[in-house]
Design a protein around this nucleic acid. Structure first.
Lengths: 197, 197
DNA sequence: AATGATCACATACGCGACGTATGTCAACAA
DNA sequence: TTGTTGACATACGTCGCGTATGTGATCATT
């Protein structure tokens, strides 16, 4: 009982979200036209407003999709790590690499916060940060790292990784900048979590 | 020879920038209307386009002004510190406090990067980051802190402070969150800069 | 299977906002 | 004093969002 109706709807939403990802990434949220968006998807603004309410709603849907992909990727990275501690480090470095993708950078890191507010309020970003928070809490209980507020630590780590990515992307020579940023980030992460009180 | 003409111009630009600060801070860049802006300043859009070219130009002028104020403030903080090392710490913590100001947060941290691109490309933000970079380099030469890329370290520190502020502002109970964030940031800063290789 | 209701989407409209082109009046130069 | 420059106002065109309305396909019910 999939319902022919629901299947068509899902397809429509998918086409709209995909077209929006492309437009938002290339032109930016503000400069992206809804008419152009929907036309490229073979639809009109009617479908868009019916399914997503308004332009912000569409951006929200796009962000949810990208965030889910990021979450999947990061889970895989941590799963391949030898220890939880190394997994935490690997996750954040992977996050830096992901943030170099223009699509992720533009939509998730620049327009997203400006339009929808702080990422900690987004449901999935919360999930991402919560993963780090839980991991840090576990490592604190393990005695692996220094006791501290896990939520604050997760947020700071994430913020540092995020800005490292923005710095790399804005640099004159990104490939040359990357290793310096990663090295500095590793110092930062180890220092933050292992430093004595 | 101040020139009566130039004086009037300066006054006009000042009124426009001030009105823009207020509007951008309260409504956000996208939702702020140029007509309303200029009307509140007792002018029209003609003055605006003549002096600043377009809406982005006005935002740039606003950002330059705020950034200069921040720079002044941070200079004062570092001057009052006992050592350069403590000055660096104090500067970043002061930056966290400043970033809690809704005006600074909205304009400098959310809309600014989304509209004008990465802050490292802004002339004055460069100056701010360069200050931190130079300080870190000095401390490395001193042997006070661990050798590393000073630019990367400055950017990571700044990013962590920035996101700490965003986290605090988005928290349920900002006053209660503040000390936790500051404490975590101190751990981070000390750990980053003092940790052995 | 037929019919009425629902719903997904298209079409049409109004409104607001940006940017530009043109006009006007005061300030400077000669 | 007069011609010129330039700072700002006014008027216009255009575009893009959001809403209200229309339409045809799908689902439920008998």
């Amino acid at each position: 009982m999939a319902g022919r109706r629901a299947q068509m709807v899902e397809e429509t939403r998918g086409k709209l979200v995909q077209a929006a990802r492309k437009a938002f990434a290339s032109k930016g949220y503000a400069a992206a036209s809804m008419d152009d968006l929907t036309a490229e998807a073979g639809l009109t603004r009617g479908a868009l407003y019916h399914n997503f309410g308004d332009k912000k709603g569409l951006l929200k849907a796009v962000i949810d999709q990208i965030d889910a992909e990021i979450l999947d990727h990061l889970r895989g990275v941590q799963a391949r790590a030898a220890t939880e501690w190394e997994g935490l480090l690997a996750e954040n470095i992977a996050f830096i690499e992901l943030a170099l993708d223009p699509e992720i950078q533009r939509i998730m890191l620049l327009d997203g916060p400006a339009v929808l507010g702080d990422p900690s309020q987004w449901p999935n970003q919360n999930a991402c940060l919560r993963r780090a928070t839980v991991t840090i809490q576990t490592l604190i209980d393990n005695g692996t790292i220094h006791p501290m507020d896990p939520e604050a630590a997760a947020r700071l780590l994430n913020g540092a990784a995020l800005n490292a990515a923005l710095w790399i992307a804005a640099a004159d020579d990104p490939p040359a900048t990357m290793p310096k940023a990663v090295e500095a980030f590793q110092h930062l992460a180890k220092g933050l979590l292992r430093a004595p009180a």
